[in-house]
């Protein structure tokens, strides 16, 4: 059952990831991204990370992507191609992309194959539960957790600075 689910979710994840970049209409790209996030959530489930899977669906596939959809629907797609034609980069970029793809394939598939006959990492009871994640955030990863919350505050300040651009210059005089 788990194996079947893995291959289904993995195929869905790769297919939707390709669709995100290949589809011309940005609206469909966003829809593909939602499917991609759901496929990843299924993979998280198979890794015993139930809380992450739920958070992924609720926060990303649910909340954040709704914003994306609104923005693409509001702004709309443009007729201009995303990548301008011609140019040196256009010609050599595929080679670099292929090189990186081969490198990553060797690294990931190579390490994955050596693990074929093993039973995988050992996990303790309650692994990936909200309680354990909460405990980690407040003990081992306290500094990154607090720094991330500070980062969110600063991002809000930055958003205000950029939003001022629209308001014009009258109030900038002080």
């Amino acid at each position: 059952m788990a194996e079947v689910l893995f291959f289904l979710a993995a195929a869905l994840a790769i297919g939707t990831a390709l669709a995100i970049v290949l589809v011309q209409n940005p609206f469909y790209s966003v829809l593909a991204l939602i499917l991609n996030l759901i496929a990843l959530a299924i993979l998280f489930l198979l890794l015993n990370a139930e809380f992450l899977a739920a958070a992924q669906v609720v926060v990303y596939a649910g909340a954040v992507m709704v914003l994306y959809i609104f923005v693409t629907a509001y702004v709309g797609g443009s007729d201009q191609p995303v990548i301008p034609e011609g140019g040196v980069l256009r010609t050599i970029a595929p080679f670099f992309a292929a090189a990186i793809f081969i490198e990553l394939s060797i690294a990931i598939v190579g390490s994955g194959l050596t693990m074929l006959d093993s039973s995988g990492a050992e996990i303790s009871a309650g692994f990936g539960s909200p309680a354990q994640i909460g405990e980690l955030l407040l003990s081992r990863f306290l500094v990154p957790f607090e720094a991330a919350s500070y980062l969110l505050l600063i991002t809000a300040v930055g958003a205000i600075v950029l939003a001022q651009r629209r308001r014009g210059l009258e109030e900038a005089e002080l």
Partner: peptide, 16 residues
């Protein structure tokens, strides 16, 4: 983890 959060905390204010 600390490294990456610090990296983002450095970058995002600079973008703005």
């Amino acid at each position: 983890v600390t490294l990456f959060v610090g990296f983002e905390l450095l970058s995002i204010p600079l973008y703005v």
